[in-house]
Structure formats: structure tokens, C-alpha cells
Design a protein around this nucleic acid. Structure first.
Lengths: 241, 241
DNA sequence: CTAGAAACCTGATCTAAGTCAAGCTGTCCA
DNA sequence: TGGACAGCTTGACTTAGATCAGGTTTCTAG
């Protein structure tokens, strides 16, 4: 759907070049992935690909255990929401390494599309994982990868959304998070002030206060002091979507 | 300045508990850092601390080679811009692990302040780094940590900023990024459409177009087709700040 | 227990940026 | 080489949410 019929499929190059013979080493190395011990990385296979303008590098839910180094060209990463609206989360240029948020997932979480004819080098992590990673290393990496995803999610919640959606989404996220750690999903204490919530969501305090009042009047939530009860999850969820 | 005179300093607990004896293990383990091999982590020292409401866990530029696991309570992370305005980037609750964006830096990049009386467990990474990390592991981790910082920076550029500031900041960021990879900082091609830029920055295309026109009229930039030239960096930079 | 200060709420007004509409420009391929 | 289409620009109008101003409630410290 996103990939136009004009966009040729990406083409894998035969006889992949070793990193230490690669003419783009000067780009790849400052990108920070490869130290002096380039050999270590060579053990995990890397495959250079060429993508034409509008060609898709990866799509959500596609199983992925790789990073991609952009040797030339540029890409955009974006999500598609339930109404089919695209939201771009990032642009990446030559020298960038992409796909980090998918490590925690094992699958891509965004679309990634070439903005022009681009050359990307796939860095397969599967072998790297198997060979060199201790348990803690792997867990740390998962943790950081997950955090990148969370930061993206928060960005998506604030860019191109109404004040009402931001507040609803914030309350739902609080509940979900607490639930993950064994607390009640629908009744909890908000440890931060309205001012803090407003600041975090990029709104004025007055706006947040009005929305809380409106939600209470609609019977979506109840509050007494800092204790918040979500009364109508379905409708609150619908506001977000 | 942020830490009120009323806020008692944090207090280090004597005789730190081992992770595998810790009553909070059920919180810490699902947080994802510790697998079955808790022993591995025990080798790097961990120190539980108690922070009172409004106490500072860390501040920008403070050297830091640790993560912090929140055992109870909650914190907010924020930056202070040049006008002294606070901008909250994240809230964290019991079960969260914080400080990941400082790994790449070696120093904290935000303020982190307790919202209520909270207990945090410091997980020192220095030993972990020395003992277990291969070169590639370390570089991957740095890369992910840096990306979290970049995502925060982009969030800061979009939340609580005017359309003009977003576009100015976007153009500066493009130049800086390209410069890092050996290209010209002040003359480059924009590979994405105005529609894409608008979407990325949470603006309407028309707004972006108007701002480009205005910048051209002010002599800040020049464009011909997709080639952009920054003519007045100083003033553009001033718009952002 | 009480005074003062935060935090919170509500209403009136203002404005930055969105939406709608229409014309312009460049580029690609038939 | 010219028409069609995507991308860009400009103008007129609308609106969501900011700002300003005032009041009420809830903490907190002495």
C-alpha cells in the first residue's frame, strides 16, 4: 500500500564486501558501532542492499534481528495509526544506524522507507547475540531498546494529538504501567501535580484541569485528592484511538 | 536552586542487601535487568538510597556510570532551558530503571527529582563494563544510549515550542548531523518533502511553507529546489534558544 | 490548630497555528 | 514537448488551547 508499484524491490548485492575493505568505513566507523576490532563484527554476517526511492526497508511486525547502517541516501521511519494517518517518528541520513527499537521486540515497530536511492548495510545481530553476549549484556540491551520504543510512543502521544487525547492516553499509560508492576490498573495515586502533567504533555495547567473536570462530568474518571479511579476504560480508550 | 532548603539530602543505607535477598526482587526482576543469573549482577556493587520528596537523584553533567532501579516511589526527569524554564521529559514509577541516556555520556543529561519519598537502588556499571563487555557490546550499548538521548532531544524540540522554533531547530539539526559525517553544515539537500517535515514536527504543511518563506525574507536561509543554504546561523540559533 | 502557601479550578479573552480554497511551479514520461 | 500530477505557496477564515485574572480547596509547618 505504501510501496508504490513504481518502486522496484531492494536488490541484495552479491559478494558482500568485508567491513575492513568497505569504502564506507569512514562513514560507518564514526557512527560508533565498529571500534578498532572490526573483525569481531565481520563474524556476524552483513549484507549491503540498494533501495530505490519509496522502497520499504522494513515494516511493522516483520521479524527482525538486524540493524541497518545507512551508507548513502536517507530514510524516514513512521507509523500508521488506526485512521490510516502516517506519523513520521524520525529521519535518518548517511552514517546513521537504524532499527535499534526493534531489538527488544524481535520485530520491526515502524515502517522504514527510502526517501531517495539509498544503500543500506544490514548488520545481522543473531550471531552476535549467540556468540558474545552475556545474560546481563543482553538484558541491558533489551532494556535500552525498549526505552527507545517508549520514547517514540510518548512522542507519538504528543505530536499531532488534541489536549484531550494526550490526557486520556497519559492516564491509560499510568494504569497500564502500574498494572505491569502488580498494582491496580484502574485505581491509583497520581504522585505528580497537574502542573507537572501539563508540562510533560506540552499543555497549560488550566487545560489539564478543565479536561479532568470534563472527564469527571462524563463519568470517565473519579478523583479524591490525588487518588484517581478510571470508571469507563472503553470510552477513555476510544478517545485515544 | 531546584533542590529546596527543606529537602533533606538522600541517605545511603548501611549494609546493602544482595539482589537475591532483596525483598523487592519481584519488582526489580520483571523490570528486565536481572535474569536468573542474579549473581552476575551482584558482582557489580549496588547501593540502595532513600530520597525524600523533592530530593535530587542526579543533575546534568554530574559524572555517572550507574543506572538506578526505583524500588518504591516515583521521580520526574527534566531539563532546564536557557530561560530557566523546566521541561519534564519523563516520569518513572516503582519497577522502572532510569539513567540509560547517560551511559553514552558518562554524565547525567537531565535532572532527576523524587516526587515523593522513594527508594532507589544504584546499579554501578563500571565494574560490569570492565568485566563482561566485549568491544562491540560496549559500542552497541553506547549507540542505543545515544539514541535515547536523541529521542529526548527531539521531544524537547517539539513540546512547548513555537512552529518557528521547531523549523529553525530542525534545519540546524540537519546541518549539524551532516557536518558530523563530513558534509557541509550550511549548504545541503533536503531529501524529504515539506509535507514530511511538517508531519515530523507536528505542523501543517502550510505553516512550514510560510516559515520557509519568512526565513528567506529575513535573509536567514536561501533555497533553490531542494538545496538549502543557511545564510545567518547566529540569528537562526537565537530563534531556537 | 491555624495561617500561609501551594495546588487546583473556572470564566473571559486572545492568538498561534490549523483548515479551506485556489493558484503556481517543477518534473516526468507518453 | 506538453499535459498531468505532485509538491509548494499564498490568502482568508476558524478554532483549540494559551494567557490572564480571580476564586476555592488542600497541604504543611510552626
Amino acid at each position: 500500500m505504501q510501496q508504490s508499484h513504481k518502486a522496484p524491490k531492494e536488490v541484495a548485492m552479491r559478494n558482500p564486501i568485508q567491513c575492513n575493505q568497505c569504502s564506507m568505513q569512514s562513514i560507518c566507523v564514526p557512527a560508533g558501532l565498529i571500534p578498532s576490532d572490526v573483525d569481531l563484527l565481520d563474524k556476524s554476517s552483513r549484507e549491503p542492499h540498494v533501495y530505490n526511492k519509496r522502497a520499504m526497508v522494513y515494516s511493522p511486525d516483520q521479524p527482525m534481528h538486524s540493524l541497518f547502517a545507512i551508507k548513502s541516501g536517507s530514510v524516514k521511519c513512521y507509523t500508521i495509526d488506526s485512521d490510516g494517518k502516517q506519523q513520521i517518528t524520525s529521519f535518518h541520513l548517511a552514517g546513521d544506524i537504524i532499527g535499534m527499537e526493534s531489538i527488544a521486540n524481535g520485530a520491526a515497530v515502524t515502517y522504514c522507507e527510502a526517501l531517495e536511492t539509498s544503500m543500506l548495510c544490514e548488520i545481522k545481530l543473531s550471531r552476535l547475540f549467540a556468540q558474545n553476549f552475556s545474560g546481563v549484556d543482553k538484558n541491558l540491551l533489551q532494556l535500552l531498546s525498549k526505552r527507545i520504543g517508549q520514547r517514540n510512543a510518548h512522542y507519538l502521544n504528543v505530536v499531532n494529538t488534541t489536549a484531550e487525547q494526550r490526557v486520556a492516553s497519559f492516564l491509560m499509560a499510568m494504569g497500564d504501567h502500574l498494572h505491569e508492576h502488580g498494582f491496580s490498573r484502574y485505581e491509583f495515586r497520581l504522585p505528580m501535580t497537574r502542573t507537572d502533567i501539563a508540562n510533560y504533555l506540552g499543555l497549560a495547567v488550566e487545560t489539564v484541569s478543565r479536561i479532568f473536570t470534563s472527564f469527571k462530568q462524563q463519568g470517565l474518571i473519579e478523583t479524591q485528592q490525588s487518588i484517581l479511579t478510571i470508571k469507563n476504560v472503553a470510552e477513555l480508550k476510544q478517545l485515544v484511538a
